[in-house]
Design a protein around this nucleic acid. Structure first.
Lengths: 253, 253
DNA sequence: CGCAATATTGACCACTCTCAATGAGGGTGG
DNA sequence: CCACCCTCATTGAGAGTGGTCAATATTGCG
């Protein structure tokens, strides 16, 4: 910890900017000027708190949101009156892409803990992407990436058992936190067991039992919301399906 | 059948065009000239046959594909060596959007029956969307719509039981066929029970049993791959969850 | 400090998977 | 043209994962 050197205010400011926009301009081809223009349309809102909504399903679509710090969950109403958690969004991740099509949000976004969120008015972003080809390409990639992510979830829900799902979930969190420079093995869950279960298509009780089991097996330590991963490799082999193939025959067509 | 009147070659040609591009320019704002330009980059390939691949996972990404007639399935390899069917693509639907991000296909696309497919080189499409704002917007919508569709599947796999899944699947097919002017209640399945089961996260046997049950209950007639829906409304109420709430508590957070 | 929400644990059972056998087509070759 | 084979689909019986219900911590918050 604290390998942080003395740095200038300007450095922080720039780093902070890049932070909020990293998902948009990371693999860029953008000039400094382009980034400046992009930066110009981003609204920085004051910190939001647990329970606050970024938007609710049915709301008119106006902006995309980027998590700077904290975390957000998105969830859609299911016909029976329940809800399906669609994702947990950590710093650097973008929210709202699914609303472009219908020009309205089909899901709600709720802040899980005190968070800083950037807002990017989509109409202005569109103007920008129309004049900066590389930014347009970034947008396409961003949308495409979201599809790829959903695909992964389909595989998870369609083919994996409870154990594999929870292991995959934990590793996903770990990896994403690490990418932001946080610890990959020691972190706090900002969501409840209920929400994890809902997200993974499992009952709360199953999630709870698995946490206990993983801990008993020495894979991790669990204390309420505090998670310490002790054996990443074992978790990975759980996901990969070291467990004998299960669930419908793996047919080749 | 054969309510087809005598029509000019030109009419057919135009209709055919619109067909292949409908998903791109339907809710448009495109001038005739724009459509012309779009049309100019579309490659029309000769008919493909059952078992042909549009692309395989790992292939370099070059083009998007639009189904004109026939059907295509996409599927991704799962770590254990099996595969997850990601979707069945009917006329008017577009394939390959998930590959933009990594510039490589993460899934394979296989033709299920003799089909006509259009190919749209993505780099050329990108050039076009950079100069036609409304087309750019269409592309964003298209990508966004795909995300929305995946979201629906997540809800299906995460929250619905076997009965609800199959009912939803049948209604989805029905609706999409109808949109293309085909019968909503009488059609042939181009995919096997295996593929349906894989797609829905169910075992083949479960799919088979449900077909039998639905038939016994008078919801539909099933003869091999020939499907006749007799009671759409009943199917709809099955999906909606008329069946008493099942699967994890529907918590509100 | 006490109530409400969240989490854990146990017992039971249902949905659906697995295994296995049989039947029905569709294609190929004799 | 028929026999054969192979794939696909159907059906039955049994088993297991994970859901449901219920009781008991534990925590957080007003």
């Amino acid at each position: 910890m604290s390998q942080r050197k003395v740095i200038s205010l300007e450095t922080i400011r720039v780093a902070c900017r890049n932070c909020s926009l990293s998902s948009l301009c990371l693999p860029m081809g953008l000039t400094a000027e382009d980034v400046e223009r992009l930066d110009g349309i981003v609204k920085r809102t004051r910190p939001l708190h647990r329970g606050d909504f970024l938007f609710r399903d049915g709301d008119r679509f106006r902006s995309l949101y980027v998590v700077k710090t904290g975390s957000v969950k998105t969830f859609a109403p299911s016909p029976e009156g329940g809800e399906q958690v669609l994702g947990f969004h950590l710093p650097g991740e973008i929210i709202g892409l699914d609303a472009i099509d219908k020009d309205a949000h089909a899901c709600s976004a709720k802040v899980l803990e005190t968070s800083a969120i950037c807002e990017i008015p989509f109409s202005r972003l569109e103007e920008l992407t129309a004049t900066i080809p590389s930014l347009q390409h970034q947008m396409y990639r961003l949308l495409s990436k979201e599809i790829g992510h959903d695909t992964d979830m389909l595989l998870l829900l369609g083919k994996k058992n409870a154990e594999e799902r929870l292991a995959a979930f934990l590793l996903s969190l770990s990896r994403r936190l690490q990418k932001r420079g946080l610890s990959a093995t020691d972190f706090y869950l900002s969501m409840s067991r209920h929400e994890i279960g809902n997200y993974l298509g499992l009952a709360v009780e199953t999630v709870s039992r698995l946490f206990t089991r993983f801990q008993d097996d020495g894979l991790m330590r669990v204390d309420r919301k505090h998670i310490q991963i002790l054996d990443v490799h074992a978790l990975q082999s759980l996901v990969g399906g070291a467990g004998q193939n299960r669930r419908q025959h793996q047919q080749q067509t």
